[in-house]
Design a protein around this nucleic acid. Sequence first.
DNA 1: CTCCCCTGTTCCGTATACGGAACAAGGTAC
DNA 2: GTACCTTGTTCCGTATACGGAACAGGGGAG
Lengths: 186, 186
Amino acid sequence: MGDGTTPDFATRIGVRIRRLRHERNVSLSALARDAGVGKATLSGLEDGSRGNPTIETLYAIAGRLGVPIGALLPDPPQEGEKPLETIHGTAVSASLLETFSDADTDTELFRLHIRPGYVQHSPAHPPGTVEYLTVFTGTAKVGPPDALLTVGPGGHVSWTADVPHTYTAISGEDVFASLLIRTPRN
Amino acid sequence: MGDGTTPDFATRIGVRIRRLRHERNVSLSALARDAGVGKATLSGLEDGSRGNPTIETLYAIAGRLGVPIGALLPDPPQEGEKPLETIHGTAVSASLLETFSDADTDTELFRLHIRPGYVQHSPAHPPGTVEYLTVFTGTAKVGPPDALLTVGPGGHVSWTADVPHTYTAISGEDVFASLLIRTPRN
DNA sequence: CTCCCCTGTTCCGTATACGGAACAAGGTAC
DNA sequence: GTACCTTGTTCCGTATACGGAACAGGGGAG
């Protein structure tokens, strides 16, 4: 490996950890102790000599710093242009930004890009699934074919997505939006 | 280690990877090859027998799947209560889930928890900043003091946040919500 | 049937991330 | 001065994550 990965990958993580640690005025020893990792590990990580930490290690450190893992890492990988083809993505590309599980619901947050000129079809999701769309730029027409909703910049709509539904960018403009999909568990 | 970490930590990652892979209709072999990791590694990761992957491995896989690292991981660690210093969080804890930069705007996505019984004050953000709040549970009253907005479960509001504003959970119920803050750059 | 290409799993030697311990250096107390 | 507590670094044996290779099984093609 090591080829696709950025060269200074190691140091970048180290710098972020050290910065976050200093912001909180905790010593290396203290953070290591509280996070349950060896001082050697943390020291090596921070100065970049230990390049490739384990998730468990990173988790412990991030947890103790009160930040999500993502905050410790260089910007998302996104090799080349693989935006994550959603369902049959000619019109829509969706990047899954985050998933989190509440007591009885799974939530997925996507960042959505709808290209004009096509209609994106999405099949029915499990019963009770609700989608929340917040549009930042452009105007979109979304929802079940018999109950399409139009939503412009700054607008927000939601619909139950347990029936087939579509996404369309209208007025020839690209649509950028965030999409939250909430699925009841079981 | 292994004490603070959830027990099924390993399997959770595996399940997510497998689900994302299946959604994309790629085989394990293909993903392993394209991501530049061993099939053994990926296989073990997916079925949970390989519990504690290296960041480099996870990065390669996430990159190839087109998702940020966070999407592969169980909920943010957040040991104890270290919610990422909001403003002066007695009433609100906010976890920064993701930040992304568009051409001229920085977007921050928070997961918000508003505790009832207090009023959370937030100072003015830079001019042009807009906040988008989507409430999942509870009812919140938010916005500038002279233009408070009430929003219940499933509801969504937005307001320009370049003036001081407040967050309150009303009706004695905890509010869980997602908050997007969009700040124009320069 | 054989041959080929694919699937995902398991085996195993090597590389390395891990934490405990020892360490030098800097403060403070007395 | 000594004694003690920090700080962050380095040494080193052990545990383990890694990928290459071998593997069993499933479809087609002919």
